[in-house]
């Protein structure tokens, strides 16, 4: 019961934060480096609470992303569903990786996600992206361990505080 409540509270909050971080204005020089926060947060929840967060949740979070980022409805949903599928398939292994190895795996996942997004864009006739487009997963690499530690600590605290 406790866990259920805690999970219920943290998931929407983290999604909201990820969306806000995605919208935050950045200077043009740094903007391409912005990691795909929505994807990162989703991977965390897929690994931690697989019984609650699956492809359906990924799809819904994707739709939220589509609405806020002004992309075609279904684009983020498609990307996140595929991300969720891969994470679910390798969850057993990913879960027991040391953090640095997990970061590498997350990097590969986000790179794959970028490829999918690029394919969608090319099908829509927007042409091949610039080279800076591929830089974003690089920043996710050092960011992942911190995100895991931060979320783990926050959830642990919340659980302890409850009687």
């Amino acid at each position: 019961m406790n866990r259920a409540n805690a999970g219920f509270f943290w998931l929407p909050l983290s999604v909201l934060l990820a969306v806000l971080l995605g919208l935050l204005p950045l200077p043009d020089a740094v903007a391409p480096l912005r990691p795909y926060f929505l994807g990162l947060v989703l991977v965390y929840w897929l690994l931690e609470t697989p019984d609650r967060v699956g492809m359906g949740a990924a799809f819904v979070i994707g739709l939220i992303g589509d609405l806020t980022f002004g992309t075609l409805i279904g684009e983020h949903a498609l990307r996140l569903t595929i991300l969720a599928f891969i994470v679910q398939r390798f969850r057993a292994r990913l879960r027991f990786f040391p953090l640095w190895q997990q970061s590498l795996a997350v990097f590969a996942l986000l790179m794959n996600d970028r490829v999918i997004a690029a394919i969608v864009r090319m099908v829509l006739g927007e042409g091949a992206p610039r080279w800076t487009y591929w830089l974003s997963p690089l920043l996710a690499l050092p960011l992942w361990p911190w995100l895991v530690v931060l979320f783990d600590t926050l959830r642990m605290r919340a659980r302890e505080r409850r009687p």
């Binding site: 075609l72 498609l78 595929i82």
Partner: peptide
């Protein structure tokens, strides 16, 4: 897990088809 995964593939295909349908109709 193997059984889960084949079910997962089916669900993935359903979601992907749904997402593509949404994108086409929005486009």
């Amino acid at each position: 897990r193997y059984g889960d995964n084949s079910g997962g593939t089916l669900r993935l295909l359903v979601y992907v088809a749904l997402a593509i349908a949404l994108m086409v109709s929005d486009h």
